[in-house]
Amino acid sequence: MLDQEPKIVAFLCNWCSYAGADLAGTGRIQYPPNVRVIRVPCSGRVDPLMILKCLQRGADGVLVSGCHPGDCHYIAGNYLARRKFALLDELLDFYGIEKGRVHFSWVSAAEGEKFADVVKQVTETVKALGEPAKLVR
């Protein structure tokens, strides 16, 4: 269990999840203040290396969130991202890095509630994992 509040980097896609996070804000929905949001044009923009770099440079967890399948502004960006992330997930697990450091979610622009839930869930999981030691520089 982590003593301090965990730092979580969230890559949110401009068209869905970022708007979802915005909706959570305007709707005054309470969620843990642990996420640092980075707005990206599409979940497909997120290079798995960015996720690893976050973990290396001190993030306790990473969340990548994009549009639901079929809703991508660029038609297929999230489908392509899904393949990359499936492989990244597999690689990190095989390598022995704790499952639960890196999360993926689909959150639409109308799902403020879901965004808050995702953040809660991710924060709890990351907190339970404790101090990250494996990739940190």
Partner: peptide, 10 residues
């Protein structure tokens, strides 16, 4: 593919 595995996604 639409039916690619997605059970790891929240």
């Amino acid at each position: 593919r639409r039916e690619d595995p997605d059970d790891f996604i929240l």
